[in-house]
C-alpha cells in the first residue's frame, strides 16, 4: 500500500448563524462526521449539490477554515488551524484552485507577481530565481514566458484557470484541492484543462481532491468517489463501485438526473415523444 497523503477522521463543521443581541444563534451543521483516506497520486472526487458541504470540506482541507471537531492529517501529521499556527512547510503541502477563474486572480497583479507571491512569502528565493521558476511554470501549464508581464484581464477563462493552476503548483504541493475547477469553463476549454490536470498529476505525482457536481467529469477523472448530501457522506467507494452499483437512493437519483447524450437515449426519447403525440 502506498503512503497516505490525506486523512480525515470524523470531521465536523458547524456554523452559527443569526445570533445577534436579540436572536439566539442557530447552529447549522455544514459537514457532519466525514472520514476518508487518500493515497498519494490518486484522485478523490467529492460530489454533491450546492449547499451539501462539499466546498466547506474543501476549505477545511486547504486550511482556510478550521474544523469544529475531528482530526485532519496531512502527510500523517495532525493539524488544526484553530489551535496551531500554520507553518510554511504545512502551507506548501496543500493548495487550492477555485471555480471562478475571473475571481481568483487579483486584477491589479501581473501574472509574474501572481506566480511569484507564494515563493516570496514562503521561501528565501531571490527575485531572479522566482522569475525563473515562474517562467518555467508558465510553460508547464501551456502558456508562455511572454505572458509573464500581463494582467489577468488580458486572458480568457481557460487561460486564467491555467494561471491559477500554475500559482497553486509554485510551492510544489503534494495535495491539490480543486473546487469545481472546470464548471465555469466552456466545454472545449474544459477538456483542455482536464487534460492538463491529468498531465500534471503524472508529472508531479500529485494527489487531487476534486470537488464537482458534474458526474460525467467525475467519472472521467476520479479514482475514488464520495457523494455528499446535506453535509453527510452517503456514498464512498472506488469509481467503479459507485458508478456501477450505487447504494444510496440519493446517488441513484443523481445518476438518473444526469443528462444522457448517447444516441440510444436520444432515440428512445424521440420514440417516447412520438408515442405520446
Amino acid at each position: 500500500m502506498s503512503e497516505i497523503v490525506l486523512e480525515g477522521r470524523n470531521i465536523v463543521r458547524d456554523y452559527h448563524v443569526g445570533g445577534s443581541l436579540f436572536a439566539k444563534a442557530k447552529v447549522v451543521h455544514a459537514v457532519k462526521d466525514v472520514s476518508f483516506t487518500l493515497e498519494k497520486g490518486k484522485t478523490l472526487a467529492i460530489v454533491g449539490e450546492s449547499g451539501c458541504g462539499k466546498s466547506t470540506l474543501g476549505r477545511i482541507l486547504t486550511l482556510i477554515d478550521p474544523q469544529t471537531s475531528g482530526e485532519l492529517l496531512i502527510d500523517g501529521k495532525p493539524i488544526n488551524i484553530a489551535k496551531d499556527r500554520i507553518t510554511p512547510e504545512m502551507r506548501r503541502k496543500v493548495q487550492i484552485i477555485f471555480q471562478n477563474p475571473y475571481g481568483s486572480l487579483n486584477p491589479r497583479q501581473k501574472i509574474g507577481e501572481v506566480l511569484g507571491e507564494p515563493l516570496l512569502l514562503n521561501t528565501n528565493k531571490t527575485a531572479a530565481e522566482r522569475r525563473e521558476l515562474a517562467m518555467q511554470m508558465l510553460v508547464k501549464v501551456g502558456l508562455g514566458p511572454e505572458h509573464y508581464n500581463r494582467y489577468p484581464h488580458m486572458f480568457s477563462g481557460g487561460q486564467r484557470q491555467r494561471i491559477a493552476i500554475a500559482r497553486a503548483l509554485m510551492l510544489s504541493p503534494s495535495l491539490l484541492v480543486l473546487d469545481e475547477p472546470v464548471s465555469a469553463l466552456d466545454l472545449s476549454v474544459q477538456a483542455q484543462v482536464l487534460n492538463l490536470l491529468a498531465d500534471l498529476q503524472d508529472e508531479f505525482d500529485l494527489t487531487y481532491v476534486f470537488i464537482s457536481h458534474d458526474l460525467s467529469v467525475v467519472r472521467y477523472i476520479a479514482d475514488e468517489v464520495m457523494v455528499m448530501y446535506y453535509g453527510e457522506v452517503v456514498e464512498y467507494g472506488t469509481r467503479e463501485e459507485v458508478f456501477s452499483n450505487p447504494q444510496h437512493s440519493y446517488t441513484k437519483t443523481l445518476f438518473a438526473a444526469t443528462p444522457k447524450s448517447d444516441v440510444e437515449s436520444i432515440r428512445a426519447r424521440l420514440a417516447r415523444k412520438k408515442a405520446a403525440a
Binding site: L63, I96, G103, E117, N122, R167
Partner: peptide
C-alpha cells in the same frame, strides 16, 4: 470574500499584506 484574496491567504500572505 473574493477568491483571489483567499488564494493569497493560501499562498501565505499575512494580514498587512
Amino acid at each position: 470574500t473574493r477568491d483571489y484574496v483567499i488564494a493569497a491567504k493560501v499562498s501565505g500572505a499575512g494580514h498587512l499584506r
